[in-house]
Design a protein around this nucleic acid. Structure first.
Lengths: 370, 370
DNA sequence: TTGTACGCGTTATCAG
DNA sequence: CTGATAACGCGTACAA
């Protein structure tokens, strides 16, 4: 690996000026085909690759956008990592305790894919950074090290403290994915999904196709806008049927599979199960399914269970889970798309986009579907 | 968003030279605490953020590494994306057809996490790019646009054509994750897992704890080094028990869930099931589980089924799947770690690392586990 | 069409 | 400890 060749090397090799080399790369049509060939030949010969840094510096843009994802449980225990070769294969017994794996992680993966896909289509590079749990102090630093290198930033809701966001917003375009707190509502470009409408539609379905009258809501955490919007949709659905929302019990599931498990278990023991358990996310719905299965209660024959999000586990559970699927990939794509537009016209008013969801009917609601 | 402040602005504000400003950021200990404070104050006042491009250019390093992931099915249909707000929630019926979802995608996600985690620990930024299926022509371009901006590259095996790899290798350090073809064996830094040892250990377990004598192997695609190594381990296991590998049937499952389903189905119909079906990956094992379930055959009472990889679905199947778990996160971490070392000493001989796997015993092999 | 020369915002080397 | 100043590699008006 000798010293990397630069424009100068190519220019010398092709016996032209560096300006011409640059033109061949950026505006080939402005160069006589002949000389263009000569230059291209030299480029190939030397294995020349332009320097992104120099390019960005001169062009005043990096053609890179940053994606900032929030904490992920798995990365919590950041043990030191030793690079050791160890040809081994231990045997471990993996007891069937439903480990609480963060539903978010799957969610983020798809968003990432969407960002990557759309970035590619737009000819942009994508830089990714993940916040670390319990390491809030490092987030500003993380964000900064990324901000230096990108033209704009996409952050998932609540992955970054408000004050940091406010700071960033002054320096470069920021697009927020998912729900925003009210304070951000009018200042940032936003991309989100129809949480309210999704839950509403699901509840309407329960009324219309399954004649459910008594349903309970298993809620997420109180501080979650998602949770709030979904509950709104739930209430709206009830009212549309002439039911009083306050008459339907709410259980605080904290978005947690195990908490939901406990809730469903005690409901089953007390014999106070409603006709349908509407959960604010899939993880909790899965916990409920497991609890009911353990309690010997049949879903959906005795109780209907529904989730929200459309994570993969929900498609392979027993029974498979009826849920409201978020268009996660599209969230990513929309975010990039929004960012690109923003980069094109920095002074336009904030762009807010709401993506449609899909109510996916499966056995936990419909029963046998052949 | 006014013009971004530069070192000059900060220098003027703090009434020092740009050199001092730079020092405050890079080598604070070399600046008198007093002036340091002044400079920091100015930085905060102006909301100064150094330019990554300029930094990289001057320092001759980007402090960024690139991760290149292979095709992902989901991103195949790259439809145009319109940024439209649509407050909608369609209802769709999702029939229980086991959709063939690429197992790789989950695999990659974890590798990505590992890379991200270790990059963070090493103070590096991570740039991600995903190759697109059927778009091989674009890969060189993709790779190039990334190579310009990174100090080194991590690529997943077979995500990039050999000739492109060879080209890149001349320009910057490249670490390959997972198995490599023989031609790459000695030229690149490699990180992989103990495929052979893992399968061997699993087979030994079947002998020792379950007295299995007749087992069949459901193989992946022939061109996969992973598949090859795993089969080696399988054979080695048989021989260690005095069994002749050629006496154990091999079925060509192509790493495909549906193909494996068909295989298991016909074995069940013919009544030619062995005592254990050892699958080269989890996807196939899941297909087998489904087939046996449909055929009314009990696992593991009548047949033991095992997989390989440790994907998430394997932990929630009915019964849960005994498998050999690859340390995917660690693969990513090891790759970054290797790359960092390589960046430190470009001329050292290739580094090859083999990570240990874990045989995870679950119900598809052990039966009820309390 | 092609070349010259300056600027992009840092880092790093040397004097002071 | 601090301040000039020369790289760093490329884009781009401006000239030729």
């Amino acid at each position: 690996m000798a010293r990397k060749p630069t424009v100068y090397d190519v220019a010398r090799e092709a016996d032209v000026s560096i300006a011409t080399v640059s033109r061949v790369l950026r505006t080939p049509e402005k160069v006589r085909p002949e000389t263009r060939q000569t230059v291209l030949k030299a480029i190939n010969l030397l294995g020349y690759l332009p320097s992104g840094s120099a390019r960005s510096l001169a062009a005043r843009r990096t053609n890179t956008i940053g994606l900032f994802l929030p904490n992920i449980d798995q990365l919590d225990q950041i043990s030191d990592f030793e690079l050791v070769t160890e040809d081994a294969a231990d045997i471990v017994v993996d007891p069937p305790h439903a480990q609480e794996n963060n539903s978010d992680s799957l969610y983020f993966d798809e968003v990432l894919r969407g960002c990557e896909l759309e970035s590619w289509r737009q000819g942009l590079s994508l830089m990714v950074s993940i916040g670390l749990k319990g390491k809030d102090g490092d987030i500003p630093q993380l964000i900064n090290s990324m901000s230096e290198k990108v033209d704009g930033l996409i952050v998932l809701a609540r992955s970054v403290p408000d004050n940091v966001l406010a700071f960033l917003r002054k320096r470069l375009p920021v697009v927020i994915i998912a729900n925003a707190t009210i304070s951000q509502e009018s200042e940032f470009d936003l991309v989100r999904v129809s949480n309210r409408k999704g839950m509403y539609t699901l509840v309407r379905h329960l009324f219309e196709k399954h004649q459910v009258r008594r349903m309970a809501y298993i809620a997420g955490t109180d501080d979650s806008p998602d949770n709030g919007k979904r509950y709104e949709g739930f209430c709206e659905g009830l009212r549309s049927e002439g039911l009083e929302p306050s008459a339907s019990p709410i259980y605080r599931g904290q978005f947690s599979q195990s908490v939901a498990y406990q809730i469903a278990t005690s409901l089953a023991r007390q014999g106070t199960l409603p006709q349908a358990l509407v959960c604010a996310n899939d993880q909790m719905a899965l916990g409920v399914l497991r609890a009911l299965s353990d309690a010997g209660i049949s879903v959906p024959d005795q109780v209907i269970v529904t989730g929200f999000d459309g994570i993969k586990e929900a498609a392979v559970s027993q029974p498979r889970l009826t849920t409201v699927r978020q268009p996660m990939v599209d969230l990513g794509r929309a975010a990039v798309s929004t960012l690109v537009r923003r980069l094109g016209s920095p002074e336009d008013p904030p762009i807010s986009t709401e993506l449609p969801v899909k109510v996916q009917l499966r056995e936990s609601c419909e029963g046998t579907m052949i």
